[in-house]
């Protein structure tokens, strides 16, 4: 999924980030701290900012991309404000978790592992969360929803919008 990074909206952060990059220009090994700062400030690594880092620090893009994909804490996709996890453990699966996941995907217009453009929701498929007796289960952040039916989805999501 192509994620839009709004330069206008992040104007102030970008200015601050550029100052940070400036301060790192003549220090040894500036790439990791710069990526960490970008991840921190923007919540993910926007491609545009990686290009900026490449230009400012004179580090080839292929190298930056390699580093960014190596470490598990870097991400190219922002996580939404609310994380919807759908348990796909056996108990939930046999109780129709797959169709619930599909319902959530279609309502939010994104697929599992993605984030909505307004960054309000992201969806994740989870391994067994250990609540088999109340299957199927979905979690929104820390909140557990038990015996979820497809009809419940609209209402549940509305609480977080």
């Amino acid at each position: 999924m192509e994620f839009k990074f709004d330069k206008e909206e992040n104007k102030e952060q970008i200015v601050a980030f550029m100052e940070f990059l400036d301060s790192k220009k003549n220090t040894p090994g500036p790439l990791m701290p710069s990526l960490q700062r970008a991840q921190d400030v923007f919540g993910f690594l926007p491609k545009e900012m990686l290009e900026t880092i490449s230009k400012e620090l004179s580090i080839p893009m292929a190298e930056i991309y390699g580093v960014a994909t190596f470490y598990s804490q870097f991400s190219f996709v922002p996580t939404g404000k609310n994380k919807v996890s759908v348990c796909l453990g056996t108990a939930c699966y046999v109780k129709g978790a797959q169709s619930i996941l599909e319902e959530i995907e279609s309502q939010l217009g994104i697929e599992s592992g993605e984030t909505t453009v307004d960054e309000v929701f992201s969806i994740a498929a989870a391994r067994c969360v250990g609540d088999c007796s109340i299957a199927p289960v979905i979690l929104v952040n820390e909140d557990v929803y038990a015996k979820v039916k497809k009809e419940d989805i609209t209402e549940i999501l509305a609480k977080y919008n």
């Binding site: 040894p28 090994g29 500036p30 790439l31 990791m32 701290p33 990526l35 960490q36 991840q39 580090i59 190298e63 390699g66 580093v67 190596f70 470490y71 598990s72 804490q73 870097f74």
Partner: peptide, 22 residues
């Protein structure tokens, strides 16, 4: 210097690679 989620960086040479920005 902070790691970013890679267990292998506890290995000395990998740790130095990481500090150097690779």
């Amino acid at each position: 210097r902070l790691g970013s989620g890679a267990f292998v960086c506890g290995e000395g040479t990998a740790l130095m690679e990481s500090i150097e920005g690779r």
